[in-house]
Design a protein around this nucleic acid. Structure first.
Lengths: 151, 151
DNA sequence: ACACTCAGTTCCTTAAGGGAACCCCCCAAC
DNA sequence: GTTGGGGGGTTCCCTTAAGGAACTGAGTGT
């Protein structure tokens, strides 16, 4: 497959997809987020090919969303941990979860629940405006060209 | 490529990725969202191969996130429109935009700005708890097995 | 010395993406 | 009434990525 490069597009969605646009990456980040953070564990949990997992991990580390930490030297054992950049991608995963729970439920209910520490309730995420705090969804915004728009 | 099926996994992230996990789909949805809603327009805007675009559109329609509307019969002209299911996916795109603006800026600033109609300000989305309304990010939640968890 | 685990690497097969050419339908101009 | 052009695809070939299994190699543990 000669895949098109997304990183150069003047589009923040495309640039985000350049990092995690291929389907395994979000699942790898999820695994690392929940503590499945070593090569063998991730491979077994996802059933991903070892070859592809190696490639993805390398790319995610290069992209600065994961770091490889050798936490033991004898025997050498390493774990992957989320950087700040990677942790903010987990926010994206939480929105995916909310959508999947709503629109792709197989009838058995959500596989994972999220308890919000602040209020103690099982909940999910909603999108709000960073400025006024009110709900901010697709239908609530107007789109304008920004400074980095293509010529 | 014999790609692994994500739709059957007991994971809402995987089930979401089953629909839009391949890198072009989010960009197609973005295009439709901003009004680039016809085959030729999308193809020209994204530079995607016509073959792949045909496949993607078919899949997105099958998945219920887009609908094909023939708005003119002579000559036959059709446009793709977002369903409710698809419109909620645009929320996901807005989070991608926020991440891309923050972490993948090439120095020229964001290519697109979003004005929140409610407050009139240029803004971006933040994640809040659907229950208490407070900020709800990756670090603010506890993960629990839900009813649809794998055995 | 032998088995075992972790973390990859190598090799082969299959299928998906890119790209260009081609096709059909409808309309408009010459 | 045939040529030209646009919309909306389909067909073809080529390249490359994903899957999968086997192999490697360092480092214990017995």
């Amino acid at each position: 497959m000669q895949r098109t490069k997304f990183g150069d597009m003047a589009c923040s969605i495309a640039r985000t997809l350049d990092v995690i646009g291929e389907p395994w990456s979000p699942l790898i980040l999820r695994d690392v987020y929940v503590g499945i953070d070593r090569f063998e564990q991730i491979q077994a949990d996802l059933g991903i090919s070892r070859k592809v997992l190696t490639e993805r991990l390398k790319w995610l580390v290069e992209s600065g969303v994961l770091e490889r930490h050798q936490y033991e030297t004898r025997p050498p054992r390493s774990a992957y941990v989320l950087t700040a950049k990677g942790t903010e991608l987990v926010d994206l995963l939480m929105v995916m979860v909310a959508w999947g729970d709503t629109w792709a439920d197989d009838g058995t209910g959500p596989p994972v629940l999220y308890r919000h520490r602040a209020c103690g309730q099982i909940s999910h995420v909603e999108l709000h405006c960073a400025h006024c705090g009110e709900s901010m969804r697709a239908r609530d915004v107007e789109i304008l060209p920004g400074p980095g728009a293509a010529a």
